[in-house]
Write a protein that binds this DNA or RNA. Structure first.
Length: 480
RNA sequence: CGGGGUGUGGCGCAGUCCGGUUUAGCGCGCCUGCUUUGGGAGCAGGAAGUCGGAGGUUCGAAUCCUCUCACCCCGACCA
């Protein structure tokens, strides 16, 4: 390929963009901040959707679809919500050539349209819970955009549940956070820290927000998924009440939760290298590429014939593969091409291998080759290798996060750490918004979350800034 | 919204300061042919641009002037 990838240590931001473009994941569109998701990128999203959708169904959820356009009056019903979202909303004012009576918001999230509907569906405690998820596109008019990480339009899923009591809604909020954790770690091979957002960082309209935070290779944090306990806020705003078993009228309790195409950004930034994308096998639509090598036409015929045994072996193990028999490129070009696109495993076959009745296996994560793999065991061997790669990516990312997580108790040292090595910093915080704001202003580091993990939380201590009592450490970091 | 930058074949750029041998050039890519093929092939031939848009100055504008549009990067805001 003509275009090269800018190395990470030279310009991380450009490296990221280079990966997205060169791996053919996405392209710029004519509209600022909007992106075109190319087949390679969309394939990752489809894999993510399939895995998540199954997990949602397994936890009792159903899919539905609500409209993209929301009446302005709906948006304005929950005070905190409208304040949080109005500035970044796109609004439709003309329809059919006429100025609309009521302006229509293109959804920045669907709480309002969904809760206005729930008002119709919920009469009795017997109607609860309602466990609905929708796969949709979202519009948020961001000032500054970056492919996958922050785009004006993005794809996501949003779960919206209604319950008859607070405990159940809170349980749901946590259950879905656990689903996200499992998905991130098992599929994206992305280790995450679960925790609670501070008041300043929570979702507009929530009682509280819990999240998963992951560390990228530049040591910055990326919020990878959120789950909100909304209490009765939206039920009150949209008058969603029901009769409980005692015959009393009560407002419903809510949760909402979502992950977006931003996860593709997380995947890229967590695992890829200066050669290109590195896909976790479980999210790779094509897990293996076969590169046949030949010199003459006769050799080509022999090698391709030989490949049939390999493809059979792969099909036997249900491993999706591609055979790259393109004539116009030399093997070296093909190697680079597929490496750039992140295909986890490559099989190289040429006359030398045929002579030994074997193949060469190459793994993308370590860039290492294994020679003399007997052809009859290819499927089995590749299958094992894919598992190894999946595990290695996770272990590598976890090791990296641990190596770049520091406990700091002195504010000067804290500032030095943020400016110097960066990473996650575990420090004590008293819980006051003033101290939180001061730290953000001084260092640009924010509280990513108050971790649930007791080990990260540690014992009691003194706030970095004001020295007041702190219940435990919180995670600070610069973030995307 | 503030600061910086860029718009020239599909992509990346040179030319712009000092208008005129520029028939607008180079690299990559593309097409054809031959030789190649175990880490991004070589040679030969070929197709493709009217210089973001509008107006102006001039005998003459990619180049000067005015206006305008778009995108990118850095900040404030955010999944």
């Amino acid at each position: 390929m003509a275009q090269k990838i800018t190395p990470r240590d030279k310009d991380y931001s450009r490296w990221y963009t280079d990966i997205v473009l060169n791996a053919k994941l996405a392209d710029y569109s004519p509209v600022k901040g909007c992106m075109i998701i190319r087949p390679n990128g969309y394939a990752i999203w489809e894999k993510m959707q399939a895995a998540l959708d199954k997990m949602f169904k397994d936890t009792g959820h159903e899919n539905a679809y609500f409209p993209i356009m929301i009446p302005e009056s709906f948006m304005k019903k929950e005070a905190e919500h409208v304040e949080g979202f109005a500035p970044e909303c796109a609004i439709v004012t003309i329809g059919g050539g006429k100025t609309l009576e009521e302006r229509l918001y293109l959804r920045p999230t669907s709480e309002t349209i969904i809760w206005s509907t729930y008002a119709k569906w919920i009469q009795s405690y017997r109607d609860l819970p309602i466990l609905i998820n929708q796969w949709a596109n979202i519009i948020r008019w961001e000032m500054r955009t970056r492919l996958f990480l922050r785009t004006t339009e993005f794809l996501w899923q949003e779960g919206h549940t209604a319950h008859s009591n607070a405990a159940e809604a809170e349980e749901e909020t946590m259950r879905m956070l656990d689903v996200y954790e499992t998905f991130a770690e098992e599929f994206i091979a992305l280790p995450v820290i679960k925790g609670k957002k501070t008041e300043a960082e929570k979702f507009a309209g929530a009682i509280y927000t819990v999240c998963i935070e992951a560390m990228m290779q530049d040591k910055k944090a990326l919020q990878s998924g959120t789950s909100h306990y909304l209490g009765q806020n939206f039920a009150k705003a949209f008058d969603v009440n029901f009769l409980n078993s005692k015959g009393e009228r009560e407002f419903a309790y809510a949760s909402s939760w979502g992950v977006s195409t931003r996860l593709i950004g997380a995947l890229i930034m967590a695992h890829s290298d200066d050669r290109g994308l590195v896909l976790p096998p479980k999210l790779a639509a094509t897990k293996v590429v076969i590169v046949p090598i030949w010199k003459s036409d006769e050799e080509k015929a022999t090698v391709l014939k030989y490949c049939e045994a390999i493809t059979l072996s792969l099909k036997d193990k249900v491993i999706p593969f591609k055979l790259d028999d393109r004539d116009q490129f030399k093997p070296g070009y093909k190697f680079s091409d597929w490496e750039m696109q992140g295909i986890p495993v490559r099989i190289e076959v040429g006359p030398k291998d045929i002579a030994k009745n074997a193949v060469v296996l190459f793994r993308r994560d370590t860039m290492k080759k294994e020679f003399d793999i007997p052809v009859e065991s290819v499927g089995e061997k590749v299958s094992e290798l894919l598992d190894l790669i999946q595990k290695n990516l996770f272990d590598r990312a976890l090791k990296f996060r641990k190596e770049n997580t520091f406990e700091v108790d002195d504010y000067e040292k804290f500032k030095e750490t943020v400016d110097g090595p960066g990473g996650f910093i575990l420090s004590h915080w008293c819980g006051s918004p003033e101290c939180e704001t001061k730290i953000k202003k001084d260092t640009k580091a924010t509280i990513r979350c108050i971790p649930f993990d007791e080990e990260l939380r540690g014992s009691k201590g003194k706030c970095l800034v004001c020295d007041k009592e702190s219940e435990g450490r919180v995670v600070f970091s610069k973030a995307y």
